[in-house]
Design a protein around this nucleic acid. Structure first.
Lengths: 140, 140
DNA sequence: AATGCAACTGATAATCATTCTCATTTAAAG
DNA sequence: CTTTAAATGAGAATGATTATCAGTTGCATT
């Protein structure tokens, strides 16, 4: 059973190799935001012959084809996730590093308005909220 | 005459050397968002003995002291600007690479609301709009 | 003003994520 | 089942940034 991502790759006319299928599957099955190192580890379980370079190449290919999204949460390495029809932004828990997805239509609209007011058309955007859990106990 | 930034460094209790003064001045006089390479070039004009490593170190020191802000606009290198009392976000012109600053109180408020709804306190955030000019005439 | 020393600096080596190189292998068309 | 352009794997190369270390300097104390 081909993964959803694999199908989308085929639709884009990408040549599908066994390595790309494996990586597509791993990405499809990931519900977090893995970096390349983590993707490499996960692909290793399915096919230990896949090289790091191939993961980098494939992830770049997929990103350029628009079937996955690339993120940079400020820790110096890129992280990826399958593109969904629902756009969402990210809230980063600074304590645990956990990433929570959210959507907010009002913010989206305001972004378009801001861009328009400045004479621009909004093509893409990045919104990340760096937060700490609300806690009434003691501590930092 | 010490630059505004130099004074702020002194207030933070940072030991001020001639190199740091020079770099602080260059940062104060920059109204764009220079990367380290560009800062290095600008400091060279004032003091050709300053090394690249010192620029990196100083910029990190200043950033950790909270007197300058570090940005990452997705081109693989960090860019800096003096911290102002006015918070602002950035609109990146994808055609020219120009960076336009803007503020929007409504977006700020919504961000806090989103974080709160998810059980978090908003500490910092990053908002960048990647845009293309709305059909303008030639040149610029 | 001279002293002492921790902190700073400059040159360069090291690191980290990512991309490139190239010999070998493979997907997909004929 | 050939053919061939493209993909792969291993490791070298790259670019931005950080660490190392011997020599230098700011600055608090004589």
């Amino acid at each position: 059973m081909p993964s959803r991502l694999e199908q989308r790759c085929a639709e884009k006319g990408l040549k599908m190799t066994s390595q790309r299928r494996t990586i597509a599957r791993v990405l499809s099955e990931s519900d977090d935001h893995p970096d390349v190192e983590l993707l490499y580890q996960r692909t290793q379980k399915a096919d230990p012959k896949i090289g790091m370079a191939t993961v980098y190449r494939t992830v770049r290919l997929f990103e350029e084809a628009g079937v996955i999204d690339k993120h940079d949460f400020g820790d110096g390495r890129a992280r990826y996730e399958e593109t969904g029809e629902d756009h969402h932004d990210h809230l980063i828990d600074m304590k645990t590093g956990r990433v929570i997805e959210f959507t907010n239509e009002d913010i989206e609209k305001l972004q378009h308005m801001v861009a328009e007011k400045l004479g621009y058309e909004l093509i893409g955007h990045r919104l990340e909220l760096y937060c700490l859990p609300i806690r009434k106990k003691s501590g930092e």
